[in-house]
Amino acid sequence: MWEATKLTLKLAFITTLLLLILGTPIAWWLARSKSFIKEIIGTLVALPLVLPPTVLGLYLLLLLSPQGNFGSWLSEVFGSPFPFSFKGLVVGSVIYSLPFVVQPIRNSFEAIGEHSLEAAASLRASPFDVFFSVALPLARPGILTGSVLGFAHTVGEFGVILMLGGNIPGETKVLSVAIYDYVESLQWQKAHALAGGMIGFSFCVILATTLIERHWRKKSNE
């Protein structure tokens, strides 16, 4: 039980970190670009919102499989195949939770508008400088929401993990899979402990986010 919890938290932390590094520039580009391709990229990013996790899991499994060209290249570079490993879970989680991180950050970037960015440029800040000194701090609420949603969504992930990772204790057996396992083997008490814990955890996370956001909003409206 403890092993599954630890694994889940590790997966969620790594996924959220990668999502912030990857998702923030994507969100910035989506918020600022005027090209038509951005709508196509935006749609691709949003796809995991509507696709059944099994569909995503299936294609990721095929893509990452060492039998394929890309998958065999990947496993050569990283030393071992991706499917049914922790690495594979990270890849799956990043793709599956991408829209939950990109969308709130993109909204925050769009809400900044031209004005502050133009003021920064008129004060000698290069575009790169403007991004770090003005855009990122002003997008703080979106970055917080995005991180929390990405983290929580990864913790609650089930379908993609089962398809891509299977059920290997210590490697791919995360909480959601463990609960499913306990129910299958009729260990109700253990299932309850984990499931109840997840409800409590989710409640606390969302409440905390709301409170922090409210605090920030109040501070900037004062």
Partner: peptide, 19 residues
């Protein structure tokens, strides 16, 4: 580009950085 021009620009609505 704007950031390489030695200008000062005062906008209609002050436009201070809120953060």
């Amino acid at each position: 580009p704007t950031h390489r021009r030695p200008i000062g620009y005062v906008f209609q609505d002050a436009n201070l950085f809120p953060h």
